[in-house]
């Protein structure tokens, strides 16, 4: 298969970027999208040109590193998959594919398609944890947890922190990301203890970092590679409002 690629190139955070067009030829349908970019990059290196910088690591859809906006969709065509899980058979021979970095004020571009998602770390540092010390804990089976609650907690905990939610949201809102963590811990007795504090601190940090407001479009859940539901956003709202009303 042959493709024309329109790729966003930007030297560094301060430079102005622009699209450049490349051709890749003779790509097998079983090649993954990122392998296709590897091939392009190898060609560029042979031509003595700077290869396209893009984030990737595990290539199994779990590390959350890959982050491409392909043909107008976060993580490209197909639902519940990360960029690294997209295979070229999803495209038609001869297609022109536009590849952009995540675009959100809170995710500045570092180079080409690589962005800085440190803001997500900062939100979690504000309260996305249970304050337990190593070793000062009860037996694992000391507190039974209803299976349904544990399962729901796991649904939310599946978040890989890739940033697709904020990158997709027309408001640049990180609510799905924040909600996933808050909700996951809120469903467990271990996390409930500091639930109110966590919800308030994480929302405050999210606002401070310049993320937008949720308007319930649901674009985040449509593009989330882990299919995390906006029901967790509802729970975050509930947790936050209940906490504030008790202040």
């Amino acid at each position: 298969m042959n493709f024309t690629l329109k790729i966003w190139r930007q030297k560094d955070a301060k430079s102005k970027g622009a699209f450049e067009t490349y051709k890749v030829t003779d790509i097998s349908a079983d090649t993954s999208f990122l392998e296709m970019l590897d091939i392009l990059n190898n060609n560029l290196v042979h031509e003595g040109k700077d290869p396209v910088a893009f984030d990737h690591d595990c290539r199994e859809g779990i590390c959350g590193m890959c982050s491409l906006h392909i043909n107008g969709l976060a993580h490209g065509p197909g639902q519940a998959a990360t960029t690294c899980q997209i295979y070229m058979r999803k495209f038609k021979d001869g297609d022109t594919i536009t590849i952009e970095p995540w675009r959100s004020a809170a995710f500045p571009v570092i180079k080409d398609l690589v962005v800085n998602r440190g803001a997500y770390d900062q939100i979690l540092q504000a309260g996305g944890y249970v304050s337990v010390r190593t070793n000062s804990v009860p037996d694992a089976n000391a507190i039974p947890i209803p299976k349904a609650d544990a399962d729901e907690s796991m649904d939310a905990a599946a978040c890989i922190g890739c940033g697709a939610c904020a990158a997709t949201c027309k408001n640049g809102s990180a609510m799905l990301f924040v909600a996933a963590r808050v909700s996951s811990l809120a469903k467990l007795p271990q996390g409930r203890v500091e639930g109110a504090r966590r919800a308030k601190a994480m929302v405050a940090k999210m606002d401070e970092l310049g993320f937008g407001n949720c308007t319930n479009t649901g674009a985040c859940q449509a593009e989330c590679p882990k299919g995390i539901s906006i029901a967790h956003i509802a729970r975050l709202n509930r947790e936050f409002l209940a906490a504030k009303l008790q202040d």
């Binding site: 966003w8 107008g72 004020a105 809170a106 408001n171 640049g172 407001n213």
Partner: peptide, 15 residues
Amino acid sequence: NNYRARGKQRYAVET
């Protein structure tokens, strides 16, 4: 607020 959060550089292609 949301417009600002989206950043100056917008997507060229949106689906």
